[in-house]
């Protein structure tokens, strides 16, 4: 039949690359924020030892894996889940949904409310990670963008916000 055909789905390489870079940077920023910000430190302190979480995009990535080792240090573990045990798996349903989040058109909370994410793991852990992501976005983004990306923009002191921002950017770029 002329009106029947088979097609193979194409790719979205640029959007995937953009999201991969964002996830890479956010992962390193979380590692940095866990050393710099007391609230992020506190959130991770409450999580169990060896806790690992993955934030990624369905169906085939990119991903970001962050874990807490037995010494309590938070570390960005790369973009390949590999055979790792993941305690909390947060998946964005599509690359388009990830673009909405990472171009800050939708906050993490709104994306969750709009069913753009699938969470496999403990709900309290997921809530803690969403709070960490929110804090990370406040550090990384200028206020007019961050206001779109977080649930409520916090009233932080000058020192916490700007000195913290410099330290987190510095640590994220250098990766420690």
């Amino acid at each position: 039949m002329d009106d029947f055909k088979e097609i193979t789905s194409g790719n979205k390489p640029f959007k995937r690359a953009y999201v991969a870079i964002m996830l890479w940077f956010v992962g390193r920023a979380i590692q940095a924020a866990a050393r710099v910000d007391k609230n992020v430190k506190g959130e991770f302190k409450k999580l169990p030892e060896g806790f690992t979480f993955c934030l990624g995009v369905l169906p085939k990535g990119p991903y970001m894996i962050v874990g807490k080792n037995e010494k309590g240090r938070v570390k960005y573990l790369g973009w390949e889940p590999g055979g790792r045990r993941i305690d909390l798996d947060m998946k964005i349903k599509s690359i388009e949904a990830a673009i909405l989040m990472f171009t800050f058109q939708e906050s993490t909370a709104i994306a969750t409310a709009r069913d753009r994410m699938i969470v496999d793991g403990e709900v309290p852990h997921a809530c803690a990670i969403v709070r960490v992501l929110d804090i990370g976005e406040v550090y990384l983004l200028p206020k007019f963008i961050a206001r779109q990306a977080v649930k409520r923009y916090p009233a932080w002191s000058f020192g916490r916000k700007y000195i913290g921002r410099v330290r987190i950017y510095f640590r994220s770029i250098l990766g420690y």
């Binding site: 039949m1 002329d2 009106d3 029947f4 055909k5 088979e6 097609i7 193979t8 789905s9 194409g10 790719n11 979205k12 995937r16 169906p59 085939k60 599509s94 690359i95 388009e96």
Partner: peptide
């Protein structure tokens, strides 16, 4: 619709008649 499947690796049949 086909654009929505990009990156999924899915092959699909289409009948438009």
């Amino acid at each position: 619709i086909a654009g929505a499947f990009k990156d999924s690796g899915i092959t699909m049949g289409i009948f438009d008649g």
